[in-house]
Amino acid sequence: MKDEAIKVGDKAPEFELKRQDGGLFRLYDILRGKNVVLYFYPKDSTSGCTKQACEFRDQYESFQDEGAEVVGISSDSIESHQRFERNHHLPFTLLSDNDGNVRKLFGVPRKLGLLPGRVTYIIDQSGIVRYVHNSLSKPLEHVSTALEVLHDINSELKAQRA
């Protein structure tokens, strides 16, 4: 178990969690073809988390256009994720980290020692963390900033190929 936070330039740790549909999610299975926007959030159906999820939903096509998949993680149950997905028509994967092991693996901090933090990681196809955004109080910033960073990563790749 890791105690320090994952930083830009670090290799993202592999993990396996249950998706809201009950299937297994493995990070490196997705990274074979896409960048991943992995966001940890405190709790389904709370005000800030709902705003953030709906903003990811509303911008989902833009993330797809940038070659990225959005994945949300909280400690909520699969059943809670299913309700959250259904109530807000979320097109992306939600993962249930019941025991908080993946949150610990990434070193996602808790606010005041109690409240699970809100941190977004952008992981490129080679498994390298390219960006980390940590802000519990500004959930919408995670979405707009992630899109900007993905656009920059893609521009950088195009320039390297030219």
Rank of each mutant, 00 (worst) to 15 (best):
L147A: 04
Q82G: 05
H88R: 09
Y60I: 04
G67E: 02
G100D: 01
V108R: 07
K18Q: 15
K111P: 02
D76P: 11
V129D: 01
R118G: 08
N154D: 04
I123C: 06
L147Q: 04
P139H: 12
L95S: 00
F63I: 04
G23W: 04
V132D: 03
D29P: 07
E14T: 09
I128A: 10
L136C: 12
N101I: 05
N98S: 15
S77V: 08
G117A: 14
K34R: 07
K2Q: 05
D29T: 11
R32D: 09
Y41N: 01
K51Y: 13
N101W: 03
R86N: 10
E79I: 08
E4W: 09
S126P: 00
N154P: 01
N35W: 00
L94Y: 02
V37K: 01
K18F: 09
Y41C: 02
K2I: 02
S62H: 12
F106M: 11
R103Y: 02
F63Q: 01
S75C: 09
I30V: 15
D99M: 10
G100L: 01
D65Y: 05
L150G: 00
E16M: 10
C49W: 03
R83D: 15
K158D: 13
S144W: 10
I30E: 03
I78P: 01
D76N: 15
S74F: 11
I73G: 00
V71D: 02
H151F: 07
Q125S: 06
E148G: 06
L157G: 03
Y131P: 09
R19P: 03
A159H: 13
Y60W: 15
H151P: 00
L24V: 14
G127E: 02
P91G: 06
T46H: 13
P13L: 04
Q52A: 06
V129M: 05
Y60Q: 04
L24F: 12
F84K: 04
E16L: 08
L38S: 02
K7Y: 05
K18S: 14
Q82W: 08
L157S: 08
V149I: 15
V129R: 07
L90I: 11
P109N: 12
E156K: 12
T93I: 13
G117S: 13
S137I: 08
S80P: 05
F40K: 09
N134R: 12
G107W: 02
F56R: 05
F84A: 05
L157E: 09
F40D: 00
E16C: 09
K104R: 11
R19Y: 05
